[in-house]
């Protein structure tokens, strides 16, 4: 909530702020469709920086692109050895972590802005914090939060490209955002930040949807809306296939 507030506040305040540069950005597509042969794709976030005052050249100008997936709860368990066997022992629930997170920037984040402002906008993998946590002890929760970031990075759902923003000209840039197979469905947001000398001077947020379409969607809906009929259909299909196979291979 806090982060959303900051972003909104920025969007409202910025046009009136005395900022020389403004940001215009867009997406190559605003709907990613998961079909039967979906193996992941790239979407492109592109944009331009419109200089308010062309005579002035800013000392440092950085673009950071963040794509966040819908929030979900993460249950993290830690194994411990009990009688020689590894068993899940401690459990902490992190509520409202992004299910997908991608960040790209013109150079390493630590060089762009001070840690505080990166934390405020949740920019950077290490700065992702849950909305709620089932423990109030910071030291206890930290290893679990790091575990989520590690695991999501391993499966390719969290990623960071410190040099992922490509400048095509002085003001035109683009970023390739990987959308791997296995991304959760839902509403994503693509946020583009323009930093100048370590502070955000312009920001833009665009929604992006990821959804199953076609037969996959229908199967998924069928399974969730009519589970009993779906189960019957699965059994029926299996029985027919079994029966057919015994017919086909009968006399051979």
């Amino acid at each position: 909530m806090k982060r959303a507030f900051f972003v909104t506040a920025l969007l409202v305040l910025l046009p009136t702020a005395a900022s020389p540069d403004e940001l215009v950005s867009g997406l190559s597509q605003d709907l990613v469709e998961i079909t039967s042969n979906y193996t992941g794709t790239d979407i492109v976030v592109f944009g331009a920086i419109e200089s308010g005052n062309s005579a002035e050249t800013p000392t440092s100008r950085d673009v950071v692109v963040v794509v966040r997936g819908p929030d979900s709860d993460m249950i993290v368990r830690r194994k411990a050895r009990v009688a020689g066997i590894w068993i899940n022992r401690d459990r902490i629930t992190l509520g409202g972590m992004p299910s997908y997170y991608f960040v790209a920037s013109t150079r390493p984040l630590s060089q762009i802005a001070p840690a505080q402002s990166l934390q405020r906008y949740q920019i950077g993998l290490a700065n992702l914090v849950p909305k709620s946590e089932s423990t109030h002890i910071f030291a206890k929760g930290e290893p679990f939060r790091h575990a989520v970031i590690r695991e999501r990075e391993r499966v390719g759902l969290y990623s960071a490209k410190p040099n992922g923003v490509e400048f095509l000209s002085y003001s035109l840039f683009r970023v390739r955002v990987p959308v791997p197979a296995g991304v959760p469905r839902g509403q994503y947001t693509a946020e583009v930040y323009l930093f100048s000398d370590g502070t955000v001077v312009s920001a833009q947020s665009t929604p992006l949807f990821v959804d199953q379409i076609g037969i996959e969607r229908r199967i998924y809906n069928f399974a969730h809306e009519w589970p009993f009929a779906y189960g019957l259909a699965a059994v029926f299909m299996a029985m027919v296939l079994g029966w057919l196979s015994s017919l086909i291979f009968r006399e051979r």
């Binding site: 993460m74 249950i75 993290v76 194994k79 590894w86 575990a147 989520v148 695991e151 959760p184």
Partner: peptide, 17 residues
């Protein structure tokens, strides 16, 4: 798989518990 030390002691499940 039960006895060997796992490469990561933590495991993550997404969704409601």
């Amino acid at each position: 798989g039960l006895i060997a030390t796992p490469s990561d002691l933590f495991s993550v499940t997404v969704g409601t518990p």
